[in-house]
């Protein structure tokens, strides 16, 4: 009987993304994961309605992607969103924070264990992280595996707006990871509080409680964008562009 599954597999062909060997497709980085880009016509700060998360800094004329929830409210104020393929590389937006020592990253070779901790998310970020193990992204082909124990984890993915009830749990989890260790803040909530920045339940960005090495903006970031963050953390990606 298992035969039919092999046949089914053949019939479907290869589902798995070609990333990071080549640029991800528009299916893989959906339009709503593309960041706002100020144009010459942009109205600072974001028209009369403003930006609901304060991501638009009219002083420095910059958009802080760590705060952006990709709501597109600013599109009416002259901020552009690329819907087409154009600059797919521009969709890849994970970045290193000042904490990350390049030397550390190269220690992680082909075996990289990752633990996810939720500190107050809406569940969408959790699901996108878990989706990395479905056949479309197939994390294991890159030697990356999820673990449930901080003792086995090389990297910690933090999702959600840090809640008072989770501050100690987050710290203790981080402390019980062996050195060297890396932390990724995934999603606007973990990076800055996102939409919940002013909500009562939110305490601080995850980076204020433990040192964060890589941030992956998005609300939620799509799985390939999270994958990019992981490869960047593991030192398997040049700072920009696509490479193995």
């Amino acid at each position: 009987m298992p035969k039919i599954w092999i046949l089914r597999g053949l019939k479907k062909g290869i589902l798995t993304t070609a990333y990071p060997k080549s640029q991800p497709t528009s299916e893989e980085v959906p339009t709503r994961s593309l960041p706002p880009r100020p144009t010459d016509a942009a109205d600072w700060p974001a028209g009369e309605r403003g930006c609901p998360t304060g991501a638009i800094d009219s002083g420095d004329k910059k958009v802080d992607l760590g705060r952006c929830v990709y709501c597109r409210f600013c599109s009416s104020a002259g901020f552009a969103f690329e819907d087409g393929f154009g600059s797919r590389a521009g969709a890849m937006q994970a970045s290193l924070t000042g904490n990350c020592a390049t030397g550390t990253r190269h220690i992680f070779g082909r075996s990289f264990h990752v633990m996810m901790i939720d500190v107050g998310s809406c569940n969408a970020c959790n699901l996108e992280v878990l989706n990395l193990s479905n056949p479309y992204y197939d994390l294991s082909r890159m030697g990356i595996a999820f673990t449930n124990s901080p003792k086995h984890a090389d990297a910690l993915i933090v999702v959600g707006a840090l809640n008072q009830a989770m501050v100690d749990v987050l710290r203790r989890t981080y402390e019980s990871m062996p050195e060297p260790k890396l932390v990724l803040s995934v999603g606007a909530c973990a990076i800055s509080g996102g939409i919940f920045r002013g909500a009562e339940g939110f305490v601080s960005p995850a980076g204020d409680a433990i040192p964060v090495d890589v941030v992956v903006p998005g609300c939620p970031p799509s799985p390939v964008q999270i994958l990019e963050g992981l490869l960047l953390a593991a030192g398997r990606l040049k700072e920009e562009g696509v490479r193995r």
Partner: peptide, 21 residues
């Protein structure tokens, strides 16, 4: 989970967001 990913991509293609935000 692969079938679910297909639905998430339909959400994204037709509504602009995988989780329908």
């Amino acid at each position: 989970h692969a079938l679910r990913e297909r639905v998430l991509r339909l959400n994204s293609r037709h509504f602009g967001h995988r989780y329908l935000f």
